[in-house]
């Protein structure tokens, strides 16, 4: 800039002109930016921010709308169903995230680098198909798979000592069952996404690594996996968030078990029972706030550690 100014009058004029033009185009882009995000912001306000604030309002008041401070939180923590529900979900989350991250990444690497592209496409498709059966459909399928009389792997279940459906869905087995269902419906989609991310790594980089004598596993560990780190973090965040809100699976299993299972196995079920069986909306909101805070803390850690927002700095 200073160099330009020290030059002739014409150059400096041209420079200020171009600066001014860039400024006005930036301002114009600013206004347009607001127009582009407006529709989304309305939805965000109505169905993201408002309900969140409303949950906080409910959690800080009683059913007469009087402010009770942290009373609702104290009440639900002391509830005998609170600690078990959160312990259950924690066990489930640890198992689920480890299985998901390790297997999807390993499988995506294998499908990307160790298999012919045509065959790899077939595998991706077959792994993905169960994703179409999310929700109640997946629970139904797994009820069939876990009923020793009906299951195609009934022999395996018998060998493991399960002859009755009720034995399979014993409380101790529930986290494993939910991991099975979640992996069955969710992993295929993530494998496809991870594969896409791996596909995005330029061939030249892998070629260069091969020239330097790196084997396929070595270049997977040192090049491919670090380069899709962002997407792994992204997957972990979303899987974590989805995991904390487990509701359909335990709820359906509970009713299929003829009520032998705990109706408040997961925190969301607890909130549901509080709200719709006891009419305690304030207590239910307090439970929701706990779930929300766990989700936010987890997300915060991953966001700051993974470099997910690097794009933002540019």
């Amino acid at each position: 800039m200073t160099e330009l100014k020290s030059g002739g009058r014409d150059t400096s004029l041209a420079a200020t002109k171009s600066v001014r033009r860039r400024d006005s185009s930036r301002r114009r882009a600013g206004l347009a930016g607001y127009a582009f995000v407006s529709g989304y912001v309305v939805f965000l306000a109505a169905f993201g921010i408002f309900p969140t604030l409303y949950a906080f309002y409910l959690a800080l008041t009683n059913d007469h709308g009087q402010f009770v401070g942290l009373g609702q939180f104290a009440k639900v923590i002391q509830d005998f169903r609170f600690a078990p529900a959160f312990a259950n979900i924690l066990i489930y989350l640890v198992m689920w995230l480890v299985v998901l991250v390790v297997l999807t990444v390993v499988v995506a690497v294998i499908l990307r680098s160790r298999i012919k592209p045509g065959l790899s496409a077939v595998f991706r498709f077959l792994f993905y198909i169960p994703g179409a059966l999310a929700g109640v459909a997946s629970v139904l399928v797994w009820l069939f798979m876990l009923a020793p009389g009906l299951s195609p792997v009934g022999g395996l279940l018998n060998a493991m000592g399960f002859t009755q459906f009720a034995q399979v869905i014993a409380p101790g087995n529930l986290p494993v069952i939910f991991v099975l269902i979640a992996f069955w419906t969710g992993a295929g989609g993530w494998i496809v996404v991870m594969y896409g991310a791996l596909n995005n790594i330029p061939d030249e980089i892998l070629e260069a690594a091969r020239m330097d004598g790196a084997g396929p596993w070595k270049s997977a560990w040192h090049i491919q996996i670090p380069m899709i780190r962002k997407w792994i973090a992204y997957m972990t965040i979303l899987a974590f968030a989805a995991g904390t809100q487990l509701f359909v699976e335990p709820q359906r299993l509970q009713s299929a078990s003829l009520g032998r299972l705990d109706p408040t196995w997961s925190p969301n079920q607890l909130a549901y029972v509080l709200a719709f069986q006891f009419g305690d909306f304030n207590g239910a909101a307090a439970v929701s706030i706990f779930l929300l805070l766990i989700g936010l803390v987890g997300a915060g850690i991953l966001v700051t550690r993974s470099g997910l927002f690097k794009v933002d700095g540019e």
Binding site: V37, V41, L44, F47, G48, I49, F50, P51, T52, Y54, A55, L58, I237, L238, F240, A241, A242, T244, Q245, F247, N268, A271, Y272, A275, F281, A284, A285, S288, I289, L291, L292, G295, L296, G298, A299, V303, D312
Partner: peptide, 24 residues
């Protein structure tokens, strides 16, 4: 700010908002 809120709401368990949504 909008980007950060978007990410947070996206990560936030949506089921935790179902009940307040119902009341809304």
């Amino acid at each position: 700010v909008l980007l950060t809120i978007t990410l947070l709401v996206m990560i936030m368990p949506s089921a935790s908002l179902v009940l307040p949504l119902f009341l809304e």
